[in-house]
Amino acid sequence: MRIIVRDVNVLYERGLPDERAAVNGITLSVDQGESVAIAGPTGSGKTSLLEVMAGLVKPTSGTVALEGADGALRSAVGLVYQFPELQFFEESVLDEVAFGLRHQGVAEEEIPGIVGRALERAGLDPDLFLGRSPLSLSAGEKRRAALACMIALDRPFLLLDEPSAGLDPAMRERLVEFMLSMLEEGQGLVLVTHDLDLADRVVGRMIVLSEGRIVADATPDSIFRDAALLERLSLDPPPKYWLVNRLKSLAESKVPELERLLLPSIGRHLADAGHR
């Protein structure tokens, strides 16, 4: 199964004085089982591209399609928004996570089990959270609850918009574990993130956007070593790459040793396998 985006443009405020192109002629495909990070400065079109891939925003021109499966793109893709506080409306976390399941006609007796497992995978203890109001959760807990809503639906592709924003370091580790387990199970993962250290640990392919265009589509490793590209787009690579890149200008002779000690990173075992 594969999501195919062809020659897509997305214009906002079309025909108005402040018309702007969020996505500017993008073509790409993502396979199920692949893990991709979309990076780029604020306003470079990352979220718009993600919404196009989820079938939630109709491109102004161009097409997006699901290849290799019957059924609609929208039912193959789950998108977790960047601002989960805007999406909750049920009275309890249980009902919130169950909403999509009920909408799909899942039998009521199966729902508590599915919801409980989804919460656990997202890093929330069902015993503590099932009865809580989603609006009473902390920012990091809301983010995990929103993730649980999509885990419960078990779609072939999971699209995450800034999944680590506002998570504490321990929760961020659990998120990494969850994403790696998803990939092991053969799901597709696309994440939009400023957290390039997270991307380094999870994805095998990185797409860099600038002004709605793809300016790089390569392995994270090769992008993180490209100091000129990072500088031009004000992107901060993972700390170890930042250090090595900085030493290239400070003390060139130290670079080979530090590259050897730091750069063949831990936790990349799945990343390379995930890259086509």
Binding site: P239, W242, L243, R246, L247, L250, A251, S253, K254, E257, L258, L261
Partner: peptide, 22 residues
């Protein structure tokens, strides 16, 4: 590799490692 205990930021770390080089 010798790195002073006081290093807390990446900038300081880069300088500490390169200073050794000098």
């Amino acid at each position: 590799i010798a790195v002073p205990e006081s290093v807390a930021t990446l900038d300081e770390l880069a300088l500490a490692v390169s200073g050794d080089d000098d």
